[in-house]
Design a protein around this nucleic acid. Structure first.
Lengths: 213, 213
DNA sequence: CCTTAAGCATACCGATCGTTTTACATAAGC
DNA sequence: GCTTATGTAAAACGATCGGTATGCTTAAGG
């Protein structure tokens, strides 16, 4: 249906040199929205406007494409620790920022965290995708721990792990209930945990200007 | 390999009338341990020691078997609200009991909550399995809310939703990290939430003997 | 320009999936 | 003990999966 003008190869115009970027972009869209198992390589090549041949020259297997997809998400989704050269919000704001979700304007079903979804979709703990997801989840908690530690929290490891667990709860429950309202619930719990942890800081070191907003 | 004595049909002995129970038992084991997508009907019939013919006479499709599997889990996993005829632990213990996980003695990978896993495995929110999981998750929170309400908590809906979110966080994070240690982290948060909510009760109604342990 | 690296369409492969079919066997209840 | 509902083994179906092969086309850089 809606075939091109002639009958040889005119359906899809050649798109030039940016095949790899289009593939990764399509993988991000489809894997995130549908999951990795429900997304076939045929659909992926169609959405990316790339031939399967080109697809497999850039990524020799689906597993490798999934790996590249997850790797590309790491840089985009991990909370960044405060750095001296960049103006940073308060530690409280940094820790709570992970609960401020912006839903895309689409009507697509809500799927909370791609890494959690991959963990459930690929049951084998030895699979590269599962291990990448586990590594991300550990790193996610570590970043939060670093922020908490730099803020002078007494037990930053516990707070980081607690906030990460709250995030995962909001994400997983949001996926199950097809809603993002869970983030607000998680954030309210996180606020009390962060405030309680931050309340103990002032007795250890004086309150700085960036302490509380 | 390891075929029977003769060469016609002697491999598996006939098991008699309990086919449906064996099927559901095998489905519970395999779907929970491997996920629904990674479990094929062939493996299922083998583990259940049931022919595929019998399998399909009892459950006309895999979707229906998945539905029966999820339905059988509902009764087994939902926390029960306190009833006057049965001796019940304190509300605090009831609410926190959902975080006491008993890992099976196997070396199988840990997969936190079957309903969360199904939600991630079946992305389509309109699919029966996804909707069954969503219904369970809502009912799970409602049961916790009921317990909290009967305990006289000021805002039982919020507490129920918070505890459900903590549970889901521990389950999802446990699946990703292949560990059940997340339950302890969730429980510690839950304890402070429950204790804080329960602390406001005594001013409204006198503390009963079952109030706190 | 013109070469050539890169991309194109499409048919096909073997494997596996859920499901059906065929022909046969036996446990359970009267 | 006979009947029959219930069970069995195994092959095969069509669909779909990840992945490959073939042959051709074109955009991009010197």
């Amino acid at each position: 249906m809606l075939k091109g003008v002639t009958e040889s190869h005119p359906v899809r115009r050649r798109r030039g040199r940016g095949a790899r970027e289009r593939i990764l972009k399509a993988a991000t869209q489809l894997f995130t929205a549908q999951g990795v198992n429900a997304t076939g390589m045929d659909q992926l090549s169609t959405v990316a406007e790339v031939s399967k041949r080109t697809l497999y020259t850039h990524f020799p297997s689906k597993d490798e494409l999934v790996g590249a997809y997850l790797q590309s998400l790491v840089d985009a989704l991990l909370p960044v620790p405060p750095s001296p050269d960049r103006p940073t919000p308060s530690p409280r704001e940094q820790l709570l920022a992970v609960f401020d979700w912006k839903r895309p304007e689409t009507t697509a079903p809500f799927r909370g965290c791609p890494f959690l979804n991959v963990s459930a979709e690929v049951p084998d703990p030895g699979h590269s995708a599962h291990q990448l997801a586990a590594a991300y989840k550990r790193e996610f908690a570590r970043r939060l721990t670093d922020i908490a530690r730099q803020a002078g929290v007494a037990d930053p490891e516990t707070l980081g792990e607690q906030l990460a667990l709250l995030f995962d709860g909001a994400a997983a429950r949001g996926t199950a209930l097809n809603s993002s309202h869970t983030a607000a619930c998680a954030r309210s719990i996180a606020e009390s945990l962060v405030d309680a942890a931050l309340a103990g800081v002032s007795v250890m070191r004086p309150v700085t200007s960036s302490q509380r907003h």
